[in-house]
Design a binder for these strands. Structure first.
Lengths: 227, 227
DNA sequence: AAGGCGTCTGTGACAAAATCACAGAACCAA
DNA sequence: TTGGTTCTGTGATTTTGTCACAGACGCCTT
């Protein structure tokens, strides 16, 4: 039945978005009415730069990458959307009727809940818990983007690559499946620069390179390079 | 009398912070109670990186610069505080009990209204108009910082300098009082690089340089360089 | 008016990073 | 096996950042 189907949305959402539990029952019902469960394949664009946002997506599972792209096609990742978060720039654009200032693309299969813009607009102007949720996320994003900026402006490329690789390994898992191109897009550099610096690190016996894969053999040395 | 003194704060604040007029009279009275008028000299630090924020400052007059600094002492401006705005990162830090992630320093004499952290915390969790004001400012900052990042990552230094100079001239006023060092701090580069590129532009007859001053003689050419 | 001092600017030499131009290697699918 | 696609390696050149130092300008003191 439709009722069951719709209320199950709330059941799925509350564990990741606990503030929804604090809404009045009437508003919870409205949420179930308006919310749309969606599943997106990897590589699907959620927003393009310049888009007018029509929906806010609350992430239930998977991850999405928010990035800027320059004229040359170079890219840099601003931050990621993970479960429990939502595309806060969308909210911001909806409320200020600005266009989306970056690209947003799914990296894995993504399950999410879509909310139409007018509904969000109404809730945001009346519901304190919504405002609090959005405020928290927004200030977190601001700090993240400021950190990326700091990294870009003040740190050397080799040290940034080292830090990035370290963020992807665990003690049990020293192999990273990634291309040089993807690292460059992550850090806002170009593939050639990344390739050259990785080759250097391989010569210095910190890594072993192979096609689409990097094995970290000396994490201590990498950590030292990352400072 | 104290009453007059305090209520005059609200009178000063409302033209620049119109949302205050929408507060219930009891809350307006509380605002006047808690708010402290302050005047700061130029060069005064409002926040240092790592500070715990104890007050939110609403700007009435003057301007302040928010910037990041690297280990080498190089700086980059994130954005400025102007009248009608407030140091939103402060609000964000107060609410999430994080430390301030940058430096904030006055550039001119600044008049502002200081609000103690606990008061703001209470208002933000209950008052929709406060939340709306802060939300709007926060999302504006996020977009500003994203724009700075885009500029740094994708644009060449000469074009960024040209764009910056153009933002400082008006048709009637082609002279800019600024040092090369200050331009470098604005854009996140080093003084030597800025000096060299400015010298180039002078050779190409876009500018005339003298100590502490730049006269723009060919804004069209500058605009072309800025793209 | 002269000298002294702090700030600001100019510049050469070198290192780091981005761009351009290719070539070759690894993988996949037909 | 072959052909095409993606991924990686590398030289040459330009742009940017760093280091080192010299000279110029403005201001203050005497």
């Amino acid at each position: 039945m439709v009722m069951e189907d719709k209320s199950s949305i709330l059941g799925k959402a509350i564990p990741l978005f606990p503030f929804l539990a604090q809404l009045a029952p009437a508003l919870q019902a409205e949420f179930c009415q308006q919310a749309q469960l969606m599943t997106l394949p990897p590589g699907q664009f959620i927003c393009l730069e310049g888009d007018t946002c029509t929906h806010l997506v609350l992430m239930l599972a998977g991850s999405a990458r928010i990035y800027k792209m320059g004229d040359s096609g170079r890219e840099i990742t601003l931050y990621r959307l993970e479960p429990g978060e939502s595309c806060i720039m969308t909210a911001s654009c909806i409320l200020s009727t600005q266009t989306f200032p970056a690209f947003a693309v799914t990296e894995t299969v993504v399950e999410g809940i879509g909310l139409p813009a007018p509904v969000l607009q109404h809730w945001m102007s009346h519901e304190a818990v919504w405002q609090q949720y959005v405020f928290g996320l927004l200030s977190q994003r601001l700090i993240q983007v400021m950190d990326v900026l700091e990294d870009v402006v003040f740190h050397r490329m080799d040290s940034r690559i080292a830090a990035y690789l370290l963020s992807l390994v665990s003690p049990s898992h020293s192999e990273i499946q990634i291309t040089h191109e993807a690292i460059a897009s992550e850090l806002g550099s170009s593939r050639e620069v990344v390739s050259r610096l990785l080759k250097d690190m391989e010569k210095r016996e910190m890594l072993i390179l192979s096609r689409g894969m990097i094995r970290v053999v000396n994490p201590r040395a990498l950590a030292h390079l990352a400072q």
